[in-house]
Write a protein that binds this DNA or RNA. Structure first.
Lengths: 158, 158
DNA sequence: TTAGAAAATGAAAGATTCTTCCGATGACGA
DNA sequence: TCGTCATCGGAAGAATCTTTCATTTTCTAA
């Protein structure tokens, strides 16, 4: 158990979380008005949500195409061995690859599912040939090029 | 082509994008200092990045577990038919499902890959049985429970 | 039910920041 | 060289932040 207080939000906390999840740069004054609380209370509540780790960060979403990352690729990875050392080595290496946006250990036909952003298909080919299949313990990969991003990083439903 | 000006960032724009991608609630004053520009210039630059759509939004990241969404599941979906109408119907329905955080049309063994957040496995079972397989045109699904989130929503590498 | 303690609240106010105006500076083409 | 245009930083009023403080509310235990 954690050090801080119990983990239950009242209506105000939930409103703050929802508002900031949609508009992370809301002014404390605006947020207070939207939540029907005085600015002082709103400030304290928000500060607490950050301090207790319920809000893990606030991030601007940069349009991928604007920074030359127009291609999205999902990759399923199967490892050689299913030992803890094997998993750890793979995970450590993946954490160093900045092109890998998501990496999840899954149950199913793959060991890991990766989400990767690169400039284009040629770029991915290079990445695949030079880095992906060279990651520790990789036996096989399966590539899914994304042809259309229907929904991306939607807000949490709560 | 869009109406606005050409899409190339100088060193300052890139610094602003990188800074806000990591800390979306940075004060304009702090941001200006970090980027070595006057607050006035920084304000103008940032405003422009928003107006021209290079920053699509700023969002607080809420800890999923804190709001009762401790389970992450990836699902591969195969449709009955590969007609435009079939795709459109499926996508329209998926957009309405708030549990679906990501939905991508892919090339490979599946038609779509979904990323879904729910409370727990029981919750997913219900979702799967009552909504997922009932989505328009779904022939088959393949579920990948996430056992460990190694990397989640990392920053874009630019 | 009631008393007391603990936690949360809103008003207030000085410090900080935002946002815009303005003249100055620099880049570029004729 | 000159004129045009975009961008810059300083300045200042308006707005916001952030903390203090007295009050109110909530909770616990008798």
């Amino acid at each position: 158990m954690k050090d801080s207080s119990d983990d239950d939000f009242d209506r105000i906390d939930l409103k703050i979380l929802r508002a900031l999840q949609s508009e992370g740069r809301l002014t404390n004054a605006d947020l207070a008005e939207r939540v029907n609380v005085s600015p002082a209370t709103c400030h304290r509540r928000t500060q607490r949500l950050f301090e207790e780790g319920h809000i893990t960060g606030v991030r601007a979403e940069v349009a991928p195409a604007a920074v030359g990352l127009g291609a999205l690729v999902m990759v399923g990875v199967v490892l050689d061995r299913s030992t803890p050392e094997s998993f750890a080595a793979f995970e450590g290496a993946v954490l160093e690859m900045k092109e890998v946006l998501d990496c999840n250990l899954v149950a199913g036909d793959f060991d890991y599912l990766l989400k990767i952003r690169v400039r284009d298909m040629a770029d991915f080919n290079k990445l695949h040939g030079q880095k992906l299949i060279a990651l520790p313990g990789v036996r096989q990969t399966r590539t899914f090029f994304v042809m259309k991003e229907v929904k991306e990083n939607a807000r949490l439903p709560f």
